[in-house]
Computed example of a mutant assay.
Amino acid sequence: MQEMVRDAIQAVTGAAHGADERAIDGCSIPTYAVPLRSFALGFARMATGTGFAPVRSKAAKRLLSACMAEPFFVAGTGRADVALMEAAPGRIFAKGGAEGVYCAALPELGLGIALKCNDGAGRAAEAMVAAVISKLLHADEILAAKLIELANAPIESRVGAKVGQLRPTAELN
């Protein structure tokens, strides 16, 4: 079974998934070192079905549609993945990963996005991906404004007091 999953992920990303690229992550499951470019390609392929045989293309579109229809089940309460997908139902698929990695797919543009915040901070990666998506979907001014709001999220203390704000660099904002 593990080999079948590995082979499927390798077909989606185009990246090698051999023993030399494998480690065990904090969830105790095998994980693979994959270049960001390959993640972006995989997310674009999942969004469009391009580069897949008809059966895999249909399955990829069905999977992404299900995730976008029920974003809560992708990430859970209070997560940026959910907020991004809920900002534009059916138009954005987003998924955060470990160590500041964030990926997204924009089916209407046929694009996949993959980025990594160098210090591994998830909050910063969330701001970055929201800003990038807002630039890509700029033609929808209302959505772009909503995404910029997500990219510039307040930082609150444990008692709910606003103590700061996340914001992407000027190049992204």
Rank of each mutant, 00 (worst) to 15 (best):
Y102C: 05
A94F: 13
L109V: 00
A124W: 06
E108V: 07
D119V: 00
R123D: 14
V101F: 03
A124I: 09
N118C: 07
R123G: 03
M128N: 12
K95A: 07
A125M: 05
L115C: 12
M128W: 11
E126S: 13
A105M: 05
I92R: 13
L106Q: 04
I113W: 05
G122S: 08
C117Y: 06
A127L: 04
M128F: 07
D119C: 04
P89G: 11
A121D: 11
P107Q: 08
A104M: 15
G112F: 06
K116Q: 12
C103P: 14
K95E: 09
G110R: 05
G122H: 01
A94L: 08
I92C: 15
E126K: 08
A94M: 12
A105H: 09
E108H: 09
E108I: 06
I113P: 07
A104C: 08
D119W: 00
A98H: 05
N118W: 02
R123H: 02
R123I: 06
L115V: 13
A104G: 10
A98F: 03
L106H: 02
A94G: 07
I113M: 03
C103K: 01
L111K: 10
C117V: 07
G120P: 01
L115S: 01
R91E: 14
E108A: 14
A121C: 14
L111A: 13
R91G: 01
R123S: 10
M128G: 10
G90V: 12
G96P: 00
A121H: 04
M128Q: 15
M128I: 14
N118L: 12
D119A: 00
G96H: 00
G100N: 06
E126G: 13
A98E: 08
I92L: 08
Y102N: 13
P107T: 07
P89F: 10
A94T: 12
A94S: 15
A104K: 12
R123L: 00
I92Q: 09
A94K: 14
A125S: 15
L106G: 06
G100R: 03
G122R: 03
L106A: 01
G100C: 10
G97R: 06
A105Y: 05
G100A: 02
A94H: 13
C103R: 10
E126P: 05
C117K: 11
A121R: 15
A114S: 02
R91D: 09
L106I: 15
C117D: 07
P89H: 10
E126C: 06
P107C: 04
A114H: 02
G122T: 04
M128S: 10
L115T: 02
G100L: 01
A125H: 05
F93Q: 14
M128A: 12
G112H: 10
G97K: 01
E126Q: 12
C117Q: 09
A121V: 10
A104D: 04
A114Q: 00
K116H: 03
A121N: 13
K116T: 02
E108K: 02
P107Y: 03
A98G: 07
F93V: 05
G90T: 09
K116I: 06
C103I: 15
N118A: 15
A127Q: 02
G122A: 13
A127I: 03
G97E: 05
K95M: 15
A114N: 01
G96A: 11
C103D: 04
Y102D: 06
G112Y: 04
A124F: 03
F93R: 09
R123P: 08
